[in-house]
Amino acid sequence: MLKLFTKSDYLLRETFLGLKRGGWMNWAAISTVTVLLFLFGISLQASWQLEGLLNQFGSQLEISVFLKSGVQAATLEPMLQQMPNVTDVSSIPKEVAWENLVKDMGIADIRGATEQLNGNPLVDEMKVKASGSDHVVALAQQIGQMQGVDEVLYVDEAVRRIAQLNRGLSWVSLWVVSILTLTAIAVITTTIRLIVMARRREIEVMQLVGATAAWIYLPFIFQGIAFGIVGALVSWGMIVGLQEFVGSLLAEQADFIQFVAQGLSLGADKALLLPLALLALGSSVGLMGSLLAVRRFALR
């Protein structure tokens, strides 16, 4: 325990010393990581927001099939299951649907409401899940022509466009983030390598007096991780600041825009996940960069 403390004491001291000596190179490394993580964070958030928006419209792959009154879901289920491009079929009996509807409307007395309407006015409903969004339209048409099917509903074109947009955005951000990740790793590698070069004499002496490779190079690796963590904190601060700014702008806008903005706001879990994702990506980029930097020296 004491030994561990002694060791971490030394390693942290050396890491800090290295950062102090890095000077402007630290700035280069941290700012690159910050830009990367800022873009990563923004695009991650945007995709979460779009996803949330889409979820409000229901699943894009689901087709709701309403049956003619008197037709039982069980008779159609095997046929639907055998159709191509269908991954899942579930049925909602009209009794269950009615119960839910009554509950949603806040009526306590189900029986009274049923009697008032001369029985359950709903029909059996089935949910059919398509294997991909391309198949939804064709599948819906096919099902609509089946006997006993009254009506077929599925999420319309506009929502599918949003979904496509989301996917497109994800691809673009994936590419941008990948390229920037490589850039950040390259900058960190160069920075750490320069620091290693500047301290070559010290490293040589350390090697001669019997320091193990891990002992010599861990401070440099910590330094790389520190770049990533600082970049993550700065970029998170920037994203939060941006959110605050946009929020204050929206507060002065019309009610409708505020309503939409509310739909875009993220839950507490996502709000926590964002800084964690930034920290994770930041520190792994830092780790990769510094490992690459010292690998060549350490392997000698």
Partner: peptide, 11 residues
């Protein structure tokens, strides 16, 4: 003291 640091000795 560098030598002893390098070998992981305590302060």
């Amino acid at each position: 003291a560098f030598v002893l640091w390098a070998q992981g000795c305590s302060r």
